[in-house]
Design a binder for these strands. Structure first.
Lengths: 134, 134
DNA sequence: CTTGACCTTTCCATTATGGGAAGCTTTATA
DNA sequence: TATAAAGCTTCCCATAATGGAAAGGTCAAG
């Protein structure tokens, strides 16, 4: 199949498939005489794996490691698990960070009239000297 | 004061101060005969405002709007508040997204032995046909 | 045989930040 | 004072992952 079909079937854009190939994340497929890339069903499988990994927030480099583990039939599941759990912690940390920002801002907004008047605790806070805010 | 001191006092790196100037976020300061940038106390104030805005996750474009509102003494606090609340929603949405990824992955990891054996539900999931996972 | 859909490569843009080089200035030290 | 260190200037490059567009070749259907 051509790259377009592989893209549709895997959920990875043709653009990205070429990119992944260029950085060595996936192996270069065969080519027709006219240089068209030709993919096999198994390649779509790999692309789906990458897609899933990306959807779960793994970077391409992490995805590269996961792919290597996937291909290595003698891997230790402990290796996969530790990689996954490290990522879980990173995700949770990032989520908590965003939540903290939201909470701080929501708190400030609570005290803002939100009417025609110019007074605004949000701007006042931004303009204030650096302090550890709630 | 020179850019280094302004950087230290504001918490914005000299590199970033120059960049903010280049994109018109802050106004170009005066220069000495030797072309050194000269900042006033008020400039540090502005830089701190930008820093705080960035720390709360606003993009530079959003920060630009906030700065404009800050400078506009006849602004309506409603405008500030709506900008802030839109951002709060975006932050919470993003946080929820990350949390969902973490939950999914943690769930998969729960069923992974995490020992020397190669069998791993995490990789199995990644390799599976696209399905709506828990 | 033409048209349209699809493929190819290459270049550019995004967001915000850091690193480094080459060269000038100012300050501190011997 | 001479010199070195620290600080400033501009310019270029790199990052992560993706999309867009241009210019041109290919293939299938009408």
């Amino acid at each position: 199949m051509n790259i377009g079909e592989a893209a549709t079937r895997s959920g990875v854009s043709a653009k990205m498939i070429r990119y992944y190939e260029s950085i060595g994340l996936i192996t270069p497929p065969a080519r027709t005489a006219a240089q068209y890339r030709v993919y096999a069903a198994d390649d779509v499988h790999t692309l789906r794996f990458v897609r899933r990994s990306r959807d779960l927030g793994f970077s391409l480099e992490e995805t590269r490691e996961l792919l290597a583990l996937w291909r290595d039939k003698s891997r230790a599941s402990a290796d996969v698990k530790s990689l996954a759990m490290a990522h879980v912690r990173a995700l949770e940390e990032k989520a908590a960070e965003l939540k903290a920002m939201a909470d701080t801002l929501r708190h400030l907004a609570t005290h803002c009239h939100g009417d025609h008047r110019p007074d605004c605790p949000i701007l006042a806070d931004f303009a204030a000297a650096p302090t550890v805010q709630a």
